[in-house]
Nucleic acid binder design. Structure first.
Length: 429
RNA sequence: GUGACCGUAGCUCAGGUGGUUAGAGCGCCAGGUUGUGGCCCUGGAGGUCGGGGGUUCAAGUCCCCUCGGUCACCCCA
């Protein structure tokens, strides 16, 4: 299908009552509610930043050479300014933290977010051009407990939404001094084998050798078995930071696997890097990822460095994992408490006023806005999942009492108009 | 950016080797009950067969192009 009534490639509408979790508004509301609840329990506060950011922030923060910045950004010029549709939220949050001097607020800043992000990739299962992330950041703390807190909230969200069977992979990348030393060693090892490397890996050799570590090409993986190990180059402080983090995770009963080849695709990570995986949701198995990014603030131009950790997770992948885990879905449209049925113009007018009275009493109430037959209105009441149907026609107007039908049992009673709200409220709460 | 598969009613899909007015189930609307839902019965609305071009007496069916969808690579949430 093509034409004007069509969402653009890699985007989708979220509709009420959709059988597909990703496109079902009730499923989104449920997930968002649970995520918020977990975040509040861990004492994180919400931050919302613009979807549009200056290109320079993203380019400097995430790194000019990353895939995201080099080929996946939706960006455009407007006058003398270059804008991007944010591809992630960590850099924007650091920007907000610096712009609004959030360091002046007491203690560490514990922030969470939810919202759309954009990357110009070819869509596939669990990957969209407009996708949605939620995540949390702790800014202003270099203690390993901050790393553990971040991992703990992240795990708690999946726990709360019924997603078990997740794998937490963990690694340390070292600090800004040890990383370059490892680059050199890895480069020195790989250069003699340059002719055996793929073109992309050969390009990375110069610019970002770390990225070669997460290659999936079989013979490159074999080659890497003999390569110098990242952990051997990691500085003493980063190493103890990593050891403490692992102990903390053990204390919290959070299982993890160490993965010396885990490298993240963004330049700003230092020390801790982690990924949460779930198999059974397609090729894109990463539910969430994150790590420590002590360098990011200075990368975007801050004179002072800001120690920080965070995680980012994909909503769409969360939904896929919930499907795979057989998590109870919040499917189907939300039923109404009461459906008002009226026959005749006069009754319609009266019923319309009654709608507001019942709503003011806290009931979810609706009626047909046409002039259908009793049968048709009854059918609508049924489809809307109404607990009660209230019938008003000339006869009821004369006697001053409405017919109230319990839709489940089919029994019908007569209630004076003045008593209606109270009657229905006590029966639906 | 590359590759594979797919594209017929709102949805899920039938439509052997090209041949009369393109079908079903579900959904929607209405009637069967002139004031009563769910079940059942009956009827109705709804289709540029993704789009364009070509082959042919004849194309939903064959060929080419194009657009979209899905999945995968790359990479990542």
């Amino acid at each position: 299908m093509t034409g004007p009534f069509k969402t653009i490639e890699g985007t989708y509408d979220v509709l009420p009552g959709s059988k597909n979790r990703v496109t079902c508004s009730e499923a989104w509301q449920h997930a968002e509610r649970e995520i918020r609840a977990v975040m509040y329990r861990f004492a994180f506060e919400e931050i919302r930043t613009p979807i549009l950011e200056p290109t320079s922030l993203i380019a400097r923060g995430i790194g000019q050479l990353t895939d995201i910045v080099s080929k996946e950004m939706f960006s455009f010029e407007r006058g003398r300014t270059s804008y991007v549709m944010r591809p992630e939220l960590t850099a924007p949050i650091v920007r907000a933290y610096l712009q609004h001097h959030l360091a002046q607020r007491p203690g560490q800043q514990r922030l969470f977010y939810m919202g759309p992000c954009f990357r110009a990739e070819r869509p596939q299962k669990g990957r969209y051009r407009q996708f949605h992330q939620f995540g949390a950041e702790i800014l202003g703390a270099d203690d390993a407990r901050a790393d553990a807190e971040i991992i703990a909230v992240m795990m708690a969200v999946y726990e709360a939404l019924g997603v078990g069977k997740v794998t937490l992979r963990l690694n340390t990348l070292g600090n800004s001094e040890s990383r370059p030393r490892y680059y050199e060693a890895l480069k020195a090892y790989l250069v003699p084998y340059a002719d055996q490397l793929t073109t992309t890996s050969r390009e990375r050799l110069d610019r970002n050798p770390l990225r070669i570590l997460d290659t999936k090409v079989a013979h490159e993986r074999d080659l890497l078995h003999g390569a110098p190990r990242l952990i051997d180059f990691v500085d003493e402080e980063s190493r103890t930071h990593f050891e403490i983090l692992k102990e903390l995770l053990q204390d919290l009963g959070l299982p993890y696997v160490e993965d010396p080849f885990l490298v993240r695709g963004l330049d700003y990570y230092t020390r801790t890097a982690f990924e949460l995986e779930h198999y059974g949701i397609g090729a894109q198995s990463a539910l969430a990822g994150g790590g420590r990014y002590d360098l990011l603030a200075t990368l975007v131009g801050s004179r002072q460095s800001v120690p920080a950790v965070g995680f980012a997770a994909g909503m769409e992948r969360l939904f896929l994992a919930m499907d795979d885990a057989g998590s109870v879905s919040q499917s189907g449209t939300m039923p109404v408490d009461v459906w008002l049925i009226s026959l005749g113009k006069k009754a319609e007018r009266n019923a319309f006023k009654l709608l507001q009275v019942l709503r003011a009493a806290g009931l979810r109430v609706c009626c047909d806005l046409g002039s259908r037959s009793m049968k048709a209105q009854m059918r609508l009441a049924n489809r809307a999942g109404a607990r009660y149907a209230v019938i008003i026609a000339d006869r009821e107007l004369e006697t001053g009492a409405a017919q109230v039908k319990d839709m489940a049992s089919g029994t019908q009673t007569t209630q004076p108009f003045e008593a209606l709200a109270k009657y229905l409220v006590t029966r639906t709460s």
